[in-house]
């Protein structure tokens, strides 16, 4: 089982959009996929029309008593299940801190899905916390969306510094551009600069486009509803590139 996490220190950068669409594409190719919505904002759950859990279920991720697999729900799509978010996930940090091995707690939790799924997608909450550190350690690949703006560049570099300090393999990080507005010169310029400074960025990116924005209205992965749209095709290209890079 391979674990892919979608992570950004900053919120509102298109992290959940990428996680939902790429998890769908992965499942569509026949790989058994579980998307874990660890963000208490529950946006990924919302996109799949799955209600977040009732609260107080965060313990399933940190104790052996309740198995996370009991909470898994089927999405409307073949091979794709979702572990819904729970408002109590906001307290995960404190609970992980209390666990016996705080730095590798999630590794233990996710092991139960071995054999049942081929790929685990994790939609992480923003921030650098003990939880994100756990996620870094458990992930085979970390996909990091970056809006080509000055502030986003700053947070991306902060993340790289942090990982270096924690001695976490930066090679596992795959950055890609998100919410790119081709009309803005500043976006184009920033993409060029960032590619120059940090060679790992993917060629393909997720554009800023109204059909992607509308996902909140039709509540489904874009390639499932408008498979022929330009945005959907761009998602497919981005996913192909991830597959080549990461051999999922």
């Amino acid at each position: 089982m391979r674990i892919l996490s979608f992570y950004s220190i900053k919120g509102g950068v298109g992290k959940t959009t990428a996680a939902v669409n790429l998890a769908y594409l992965n499942a569509r190719e026949g790989r058994r996929t579980l998307l874990c919505d660890l963000d208490p904002q529950a946006s990924a759950s919302f996109y799949f029309r799955i209600k977040p859990m009732s609260g107080q279920n965060s313990k399933m991720l940190v104790s052996a008593q309740r198995k996370a697999s009991e909470f898994v729900r089927a999405t409307d799509y073949e091979n794709l299940d979702l572990l819904p978010s729970d408002i109590s996930f906001r307290k995960l940090d404190i609970q992980i801190d209390k666990a016996r091995k705080p730095k590798s707690q999630l590794k233990h939790t996710f092991r139960q899905f071995d054999g049942e799924y081929d790929t685990l997608f994790i939609d992480c909450p923003p921030n650098i916390t003990l939880l994100s550190e756990n996620i870094f350690r458990v992930s085979d690949i970390m996909l990091v969306p970056v809006i080509p703006t000055t502030l986003s560049r700053r947070t991306y570099e902060q993340l790289c510094d942090f990982l270096l300090k924690q001695e976490i393999d930066v090679e596992r990080v795959i950055p890609f551009f998100s919410m790119v507005d081709r009309r803005k010169n500043m976006h184009k310029q920033m993409m060029e600069d960032l590619r120059g400074a940090h060679p790992g960025f993917l060629e393909h990116y997720i554009p800023y486009r109204s059909d992607i924005e509308k996902m909140g209205t039709f509540r489904a992965p874009l390639p499932a509803v408008y498979p022929e749209s330009r945005s959907a095709r761009e998602m497919v290209s981005l996913w192909r590139e991830v597959l080549e890079r990461a051999s999922v």
């Binding site: 799955i50 898994v72 729900r73």
Partner: peptide, 9 residues
Amino acid sequence: LLIEPLRGY
């Protein structure tokens, strides 16, 4: 009649 259940439902 076949009722195909979905996980979690």
